[in-house]
Structures are given as C-alpha cells and as structure tokens.
Amino acid sequence: MSRRCRTAISKFVNVSPKRRARGSVLVLGSFLMAFLALALLIGYSYGGLFFEHNRLQASANEVALAGARKLNEFDRLGQMNNMVARSRQLVFEGRRQLEEANDKYPGIAALANELLDEAHESAVLLENQRSLLNVVARSEANIAVQSKFDEVKGSYAMFLPWMKVETPELAGYQCGRCTGVESNVEFMATLSGLASFDKEKGYVVGDLHPYYKSHVNAKLSGPDSDLDFKISSLAATVKNSTPPARIILPGNFHSIASGDLPSVCRVKLWLPVSTGYGPYAGGKMSCVGAAAATGGLPQQ
C-alpha cells in the first residue's frame, strides 16, 4: 500500500498515521492483559474445586453425625442390648431351676415351669420389640439425615463465570457398625453355668474386663435354642465416661444385616460442579462421611 493511499485512509477514518502506530501497542498490550486475566480465572476455577471438595466433605460428616445421633437417642440401643442380655440370663436360669426342681423338688416343678415359660415368652416379645426398634431407629435416622441435608444443600448453588456449582444430591445413606467396636453389655459372670457356656461359645471378648461380642446371635443350647438373642455393636460406658457421638473414618464403617441394630451412619453426597473457563473439568464431586452413635449408658 502506498504512502498516499494510507494517508487517504487515515484521513477517511480521521486517524493520523502516528496515532495508529501508537494504538497498536495499546491493542497488543490489552490482548496480553486479557490473556493473563484468563489464566488467573482458570487458576481460580481449579482452586474453587478444591475448596468445594473440602466444604462437601464437612457437610457429609455433618449429615452423617445428625443420623448417628438419632440412632441411639435416649440410649434406646444400649438399653435394648442390656435387656436382651438379661432376658437371656433369665431363660438360662429358668431352665436350670426347672431341671433342679424336677430332680430335687418335684413339688415346685410346676411353678419353675411357669417361670420358664414366662421368661421364654418375654424373650420372644423382646425380640419382636428389638425388630421394631430397628425399624424405628433406622427410619428416624433417615429422617434426621434428610432433614440435615435439606438444611445444608441450599447454601451450595453458585453460578460464577469461572465456576458452576449446583445443588448437592444425597447419593446414599447406610446404617452399620464401627469396625472393632463390640457391645456395651458387660459379661455376666454371676451365673457360672452361663459364663462358662458363653466363653466356650466365644460370645465374649476380653480377659480382664470381658464384654459381649456384637452382632452374634447368642443362642442358648438345648430346648431354648429356638430363641434369638441378638446383641448389637455400641461403644460402652467405661469408668463413667460415655463416648459421645463422633465422626469416624468412612473406612471403619462395617455393613450389618438388615435385622441388626445399627450404631453408625454413613452418607454419600454428590455435588455437580464444572469450571467455566479453560479446559473443561466437570462432573459429580463425591464425598463420604460416617459417624458413630453415642455410647450406651451403664445398666440401670
């Protein structure tokens, strides 16, 4: 392009050649600044994902803790465990007394039989109540989890130019027990026959301070073997120290059968997130939280 021609164009657009030359530096500088700003926003996007993950983990723990606290509300699991153990003791002792009466005191054998029947019926009734408690505790914990989740989920949705965070989803909720935690029921050494039977069957754990193992059906032998005595896992009160509900490592969650009383809640949250600028990074962020219920109080 000739000089005359360029001057003519410059006059036409009312820009002198000198101004145009200086303006090009400004334009290129602006491009450079825009590029740097974009790089900064990409950095913010990825930093934001890390922040959101920490936040989601805290929410998962909080939701799991709400469910776990509900499981053993009013020490219902602890009391049920103790009642099951006492009922078992009663049946065992009733059977022994009946056998003794038949051998030595036939006159009171009928009375001993009546007592045994009563203990037997109580054990059946208690097992029904235990099953009902299982349904109630799980269902109330579920409601508590859902309620806490509804409380926290509203604070997440955020649509920024460099990052999009949607509302989290409650992907899963499970009840179980904590690995390594046995029952809150102290071993009953008062009935020597039952004590040796339990040790022989491996229903207890520990030597100096034995406790009943959790999640075993501690069936009796002989005619009473039809009865179920299921003692569940729950942290025990020791030296007047009752363990409070607490967050645990999700890896310490242990699944249990649907008929067993649970003492741990585990929840899984999903959070759909994506970056706004830069290479696309998006999907469902996932966090798992687990919490254990309050420990069982001492036997009244």
């Binding site: 046995e182 809150n184 102290e186 754990v205 520990g206 100096l208 301070h209 034995p210 406790y211 942290a235 025990a236 020791v238 030296k239 120290s241 363990p243 409070p244 607490r246 967050i247 645990i248 420990g295």
Partner: peptide, 11 residues
Amino acid sequence: WENFGIDPVSQ
C-alpha cells in the same frame, strides 16, 4: 482428637 472413649477391654 475425636475419640475420647475408653476401650472397655483394656480400660
């Protein structure tokens, strides 16, 4: 620290 319980077996 989270777990302030006492181990029932070892006390």
